[in-house]
Design a protein around this nucleic acid. Structure first.
Ligand SMILES: [Mn+2]
Ligand SMILES: [Mn+2]
Ligand SMILES: [Zn+2]
Ligand SMILES: [Zn+2]
Lengths: 132, 132
DNA sequence: CAAGTAGTTTAGAACGATTTTAAAGTAAAA
DNA sequence: TTTTACTTTAAAATCGTTCTAAACTACTTG
């Protein structure tokens, strides 16, 4: 399925701008990135795009499930092209995130979900720091 | 140990402002809050404080281990008075966080920490959503 | 295809959270 | 007590992100 179809399938019009972003993000390679990182990649690919459009697209892509947004206490939003349930190592010094595939973690015991709520995904974050 | 001692012990001068904040935060009750939430509590207690001072103190308190900062993709920083290793339920709709005590989760299998790094804490986030 | 219309892009302004500045104030050290 | 280093503050600055409103474009309908 090409990117045009992927966009159509989630109900997004395949505009020129969304196709440029899809060509960068939906190539099957997992990456973590900010809006500014993406703008740099767009520029490097010989294109250019308003930062407002980049934010618009990232929000649409995220809401349609084409990408995820990472929970992060940094002040810049971090997005993730790995949309499978998975986990992360985080180096808090540098902010670097490393994927952990779902089957590398085994949660033996989980607490009861609060009354009236449904489980909507479990994420494990392993904070790491450089050995001295 | 009173709050003045607690501050001294972590190497912070017990200034008037830090004592006001310590009196609110270090009362043994676990809570999640923003800088603005705290400013409101300070105001309600009959005191007042510059927002810059509140941010200064929260950063110092966090760096000294008196409070934690939660990983959150919201744009406002969320702090946590529960400094034990623990986990959270997150309602992504509302942003509400609920503590999960450490012994309510059992991680059976963990991935190998990357070469040259040390494990610096594991956090489990269980996203929940309201049942319809 | 030819309108029509609903959705999209954009530059720039606006916004909200946080940090910086620099001057005045305070705690601890000498 | 004097000195020194640290802290607080209001206000300005900064930074990431969203809003505005006008121009543009993809899709729909005839
Ligand atoms: Mn955040
Ligand atoms: Mn932000
Ligand atoms: Zn990831
Ligand atoms: Zn907590």
């Amino acid at each position: 399925m090409d990117n045009k179809e992927k966009l159509r399938k989630v109900g997004l019009r395949p505009t020129k701008q969304r196709m440029i972003i899809a060509d960068i993000l939906l190539d099957g390679i997992n990456r973590h990135f900010t809006a500014e990182n993406l703008q740099n990649e767009i520029n490097s690919s010989g294109n250019s795009m308003s930062i407002a459009t980049i934010y618009n697209c990232l929000k649409k892509f995220r809401n349609c499930g084409l990408i995820k947004q990472v929970e992060s206490s940094k002040d810049t939003a971090i997005f993730d092209t790995n949309i499978n349930q998975h986990h992360h190592f985080l180096d808090e010094e540098t902010g670097e995130l490393i994927d952990i595939e779902n089957d590398e973690v085994n949660l033996h015991k989980l607490p009861k979900i609060p009354q009236g709520y449904l489980n909507n995904g479990v994420e494990v974050l392993i904070k790491i720091k450089k050995q001295i």
